[in-house]
Design a protein around this nucleic acid. Structure first.
Length: 272
DNA sequence: AAGATTACCTGAAGGC
DNA sequence: TGCCTTCAGGTAATCT
């Protein structure tokens, strides 16, 4: 499940390996992952050079520039199981939907559950296409985040997952952030002090920084550009550990449903 | 209006 | 062994 740290690692790898390379071909095996028609997408991208790689929240944005200066952007959301591979000798299976040919360097897009989407945006309006998405969770200032979340009454976990408020946290890192901040996932921001909320955002950024450093979390099937799993899983304090002992206080970690998502927390460390 | 629920997908895991 | 059901989760759309 790629969240901000996983997407950041993919963005770094794409930037390092592909920036400055020309896209000479694009093979589409399952057009459903493209928001536009195969013909439109291929026509706008093939022949252009990959010049920019950005990440905003969980979005990956690839900027292509033609010899005449025209630009086209690919806005990518990997959702649950989207992956990019540059693996040498990688053998495509039935889950590979796209093959980008960067002048001889093949990059495959694979997505087991077909939830991911790649949307073509032309004429440099990439920022407008992100208008429904809040500020990046790693960059947002506390004052702005607090203005958006401080008086809300929904469970804090549901609001942390709401990408319109701030973008980047998914189910794994929300549970980790709330554990580190000592906040119950069903607590309501309107009932919490400003200092407590400040701690939640600080811990959220901290856990994502650490996860980026460790190559992300591999739980189901996230792997990086080269097919290697992330190393952050062994650092997880609560996610996936329901019924086991808290590493801090020995309470049994509880698993409940909050905002429709499986949620693990420590009743000792995260009292309501 | 904000919060809650459902659809979209496939593979893993559990029950019998 | 094998079939069936349930669960996992990010987001958009739909409902209350």
């Amino acid at each position: 499940m790629p969240e901000l740290p996983e997407v950041e690692n993919i963005a770094l790898a794409l930037k390092k390996n592909l920036t400055g390379r020309r896209l000479t071909g694009l093979q589409v095996d399952f057009a459903g992952v493209l928001a536009q028609s195969t013909r439109v997408t291929r026509g706008a991208l093939v022949g252009k050079v990959l010049t920019h790689v950005h990440r905003h929240g969980k979005y990956l944005i690839l900027g292509f520039t033609g010899d005449d200066g025209t630009q086209a952007f690919l806005m990518i959301h990997l959702r649950m199981t989207g992956q990019f591979f540059i693996l040498d000798g990688f053998i495509p299976d039935q889950h590979v939907h796209l093959a980008f040919d960067f002048d001889g360097l093949l990059v495959h897009y694979r997505d087991i559950r077909k939830f991911g989407r790649l949307e073509l945006v032309e004429d440099g309006i990439a920022p407008a296409a992100l208008s429904h998405v809040g500020p990046d969770m790693m960059k947002v200032r506390f004052s702005e985040w607090h203005r958006r979340i401080g008086s809300r009454r929904a469970p804090i976990k549901a609001l942390l997952l709401n990408q319109g408020i701030a973008s980047g946290l998914g189910n794994i890192y929300v549970d980790e952030s709330l554990f580190l901040a000592g906040v119950h996932p069903e607590a309501r921001p309107c009932d919490l002090s400003e200092e407590t909320l400040r701690e939640v955002l600080k811990r959220g950024k901290q856990v994502m920084r650490l996860a980026i450093k460790h190559g992300g979390t591999t739980f189901m099937n996230f792997t990086n550009f080269h097919g290697k799993p992330g190393n952050f899983r062994r650092k997880l304090r609560v996610y996936g550990r329901g019924g086991q002992a808290c590493r801090d206080c020995d309470s049994v970690l509880e698993k409940i449903v909050v905002g429709g998502r499986g949620t693990v927390f420590c009743p000792g460390c995260q009292a309501l």
